[in-house]
């Protein structure tokens, strides 16, 4: 993987493709919007409902998922020619589980409070459909670098939704953002109350639903995607 990012028309399938060729950039960017794992592919919903009560855990969770998708894609892609086809799912699972366990251990050691909030959901990244989905659909057939980008992209696409939902839920549910009070005291004095529903998981479903609605009326490419 050499760094020769300038010139080199990207569309050509040369042996040495530019590091950030158009195709690679698209691999990275597509999952952010046009092919977002949550709002378009509707994968990984469960954890999106659970860990979006506050922004900070959502950010950490997003970072964890980006790490896992990126490196499991990279490792699987590097091993793709040696993995025996009959046990490929198991091999992928081992790779994913190892990465997730590392994330979990590191959180417990360095961010104990957050790891308590995320509790089981870090472990459940293993079962997040996005991870295995990308391994099967992309990493098994692609070179390491595009696979890595695909992993980062999908992790980011997941993370964006997580953080957006968390911003809405923390703002309206608790009146804070990242723990700082955003809604001023005078609003409460004049009868404003935090919305208790926003703290509960169903609120995440509503917010994601709205997000999908806004995204589809704004992004023409998605109009006919079912």
């Amino acid at each position: 993987m050499s760094v020769e990012s300038t010139s080199a028309p990207a569309v050509q399938e040369k042996k040495k493709e530019a590091l950030f060729s158009k195709k690679n950039v698209r691999t990275l960017r597509d999952p952010l919007d046009d092919n977002n794992p949550i709002t378009v592919q509707v994968l990984g919903i469960c954890s999106a409902l659970a860990v979006t009560v506050q922004v900070k855990p959502a950010l950490i969770m997003a970072a964890g998922v980006i790490f896992v998708t990126a490196f499991s894609n990279l490792i699987t892609s590097m091993l793709r020619n040696s993995i025996p086809n009959r046990v490929r799912i198991i091999v992928q699972l081992i790779i994913v589980a190892t990465l997730v366990t590392i994330v979990d251990q590191v959180l417990k050691a360095y961010m104990f409070d957050v790891s308590k909030k995320l509790s089981v959901f870090v472990g459940l990244i293993i079962t997040n459909c996005i991870v295995m989905g990308r391994l099967e659909a992309f990493a098994l057939a692609q070179k390491p670098w595009p696979s890595f980008l695909d992993g980062v992209g999908n992790g980011l696409g997941y993370g964006i939704i997580l953080v957006v939902v968390a911003i809405f839920r923390e703002l309206f549910g608790a009146g804070t953002l990242l723990g700082f009070h955003v809604i001023p005291q005078w609003a409460y004095d004049h009868g404003y109350v935090n919305n208790g529903l926003m703290v509960l998981p169903p609120a995440a479903l509503f917010v994601i639903g709205m997000y999908i609605w806004v995204q589809r009326s704004w992004n023409k490419k998605l109009v006919n995607v079912s």
């Binding site: 040696s82 251990q105 590191v106 417990k108 050691a109 104990f112």
Partner: peptide, 25 residues
């Protein structure tokens, strides 16, 4: 052999991580 090898490798990685971070945890 492949399955055995990958199990051993990941087991070693995890054991090292776990032991290394234990005091902090």
């Amino acid at each position: 052999l492949y399955a055995a090898a990958i199990s051993v490798v990941t087991a070693i990685i995890l054991a090292v991580t776990s032991e290394g971070l234990k005091p902090l945890q």
